[in-house]
Design a protein around this nucleic acid. Sequence first.
DNA 1: CTTAATCTGTTAATATGTTTACAATAATTT
DNA 2: AAATTATTGTAAACATATTAACAGATTAAG
Lengths: 157, 157
Amino acid sequence: MEVSKIKETGDFSDVYLSKLALFELTSLNDAMKDTFDIHFARHGLSEPKFKVLINLYMAGDRGLIQSDLSTKINVSRANITGLVERLEKEGLVVRNDDPSDKRVFRVCLTSRAFALMHAFIPIHNEFMHRIMMPLDKNEKELFISLLKKLNKGLELI
Amino acid sequence: MEVSKIKETGDFSDVYLSKLALFELTSLNDAMKDTFDIHFARHGLSEPKFKVLINLYMAGDRGLIQSDLSTKINVSRANITGLVERLEKEGLVVRNDDPSDKRVFRVCLTSRAFALMHAFIPIHNEFMHRIMMPLDKNEKELFISLLKKLNKGLELI
DNA sequence: CTTAATCTGTTAATATGTTTACAATAATTT
DNA sequence: AAATTATTGTAAACATATTAACAGATTAAG
């Protein structure tokens, strides 16, 4: 395609569009990370800590063992050790011995953490919705389908 | 809207779509990160190291001072100290004194790093293009416009 | 020209993440 | 039942990131 034609039609090469899309995606990730970090920090949390707490919140009274947390959050077991350690220091979780398996702890929310999450979750849901407000329903559906396509593509790489 | 109506039309609440979009976006980020990590590792690099090297590559012979790198890569000056230190140990960058400003170093690529980047950049470009292959040109343009909308929205939060 | 403000890189403390190796315990095989 | 294999949590070593505090150098204000 000639340059003049490109200028007329506003068309660009596919390679250029790929780079631009990745640039915008990266920018969005960075901005998103910053925004969520501030959001979590306002409530004394961080993204990794929230992930641990929300999983324990959903797990109920029996809690979860660290290995399950590792799988659900998709981080290494070694990292979970540190995260749970820090949450324990803050008084947000406790580690109870499991009588049926001496290798593991059952990690559970404290009542304080339960109350914190109970209050935070609706705020968090509203926050997520606010972040997506720039898109209307049709655009969101479109966005989701494009993301799914890219996700499927990555499985094959 | 009634549940039956939702089932008929395949329509969903706006809140649900927001959550789903964020879920898919997060999934894509995670998968993207893993994919790029492997890609960089195949060439003895990491994403942060690549960002430093590509900026120095584009900067030319005079290189950049650490403070500029910090601004361009959007990480703290303290972090740049560590990154440059490790790259120096690997023999990929050198820190030259700047006679006109005794506070700073001019960080420059070694010839080995220059050769590495010269070989890697086309591979990297192809890789980026391959990752975006699941979308055709129209979809990419659409994707870019949606990302830009979300990015602009985040500026106001 | 001196004083004050700013900029630069480093250090220390901390958070989050990885891989590797290991001991203790559980589960499976033979 | 005994031997092998697998799972679990931790520790060590490292990479990447932050903030806060600092010394030294430069710039701006007066």
